[in-house]
Simulated scan of single mutants.
Amino acid sequence: MAQKQVTPEILAANPLSLSSTVVHTKEDVILSGEKTIQTQGDNMPAYYARPKNASSALPIVIVIQEIFGVNEHIRELCHRLAGQGYLAIAPELYFRHGDPQSYSDIETLLNEVVAKVPDAEVLADLDHVASWASRHGGDAHRLMVTGFCWGGRIAWLYAAHNPQLKAAAAWYGKLIARKTLNSPHHPVDIATHLNAPVLGLYGEQDASIPMDSIEMMRQALRAANATAEIIVYPDAGHAFNADYRPSYHAESAQDGWQRMLEWFARFGTSNRSET
């Protein structure tokens, strides 16, 4: 029997840690595992990570998945945030519609699962994630969000949705797209409604997010007088932070990660609650 070829699409949906670029966090300094969060009458699976031996409520970062769900890469990002002192929680936001890691190609996954997920459903689920985190060791006054690809777009939307959010970091999330019943608004439409400062991290070589859409978003943000910054990395393409995929661009990813941590420290953790 011929061996099945491991294409970038299959690897993305089912990361096997085959790449030497994959970053791993020392797990002896964190606690992590699976949780279930009640939301809108359903039980949503989620993955969490937090530092060990925390003596007070932790700043919260909700980590929003790529289209591939809460895979090994997203769990590792939670570990990295926990290593920086955050309670990181990554919810399975497609759980009502299908298992993204069971698909072997991107087009089928997009059509059969991703396109069926309403933005309104996702934003409501994220509210329940924030509430859960605040009751399980997190500080509701230091709530942040970051998202990647599909999740990057959602991070922009959530910054306009939740007035309690303190900061957001959106990694290569689409800014302009065709409107549908499930996705009636896109980031460029909600620039005037942002409740929190947003850091956008993009690659100039990303064919799916052209530079003119980034410039349109910048103009919308300036017109709204919003606290936001968009960084564009000249040598990076789409998914440049995905260290298990061929798209990974280490220099841009490392710089973006540091900028995100600085953004969170500046806007997200400065108003610490007395808990």
Rank of each mutant, 00 (worst) to 15 (best):
R75L: 03
T108G: 09
P45S: 02
Y47R: 02
A115L: 04
S104W: 15
D105Q: 10
P118G: 05
N14E: 14
I89M: 04
L77D: 10
V29C: 10
T108Y: 06
E121A: 11
Q65A: 01
P15R: 11
G98F: 02
E9F: 01
A57H: 12
V29I: 14
K35A: 08
Q65T: 02
T7D: 10
Q84D: 02
S32C: 09
P59K: 06
I64A: 06
I67C: 05
Y86F: 01
G33H: 07
L31V: 14
Y94S: 03
H24R: 12
R96E: 08
Y86W: 00
K26T: 09
L11G: 10
E9L: 04
Q5M: 14
I106G: 01
Q5G: 07
Q3W: 15
L109Q: 04
D99Q: 15
I74P: 02
E66R: 09
H73Y: 07
L18G: 12
K116T: 11
N111T: 14
E27R: 15
M44G: 00
Y48D: 02
D125W: 00
Q38K: 15
L18M: 14
G69A: 05
K52Y: 01
L16V: 11
S32I: 12
Y48W: 05
E34K: 13
S56H: 13
A88F: 04
R80P: 04
Q3A: 15
L58Y: 00
V117A: 00
V70N: 11
K52D: 04
T7I: 06
I37F: 00
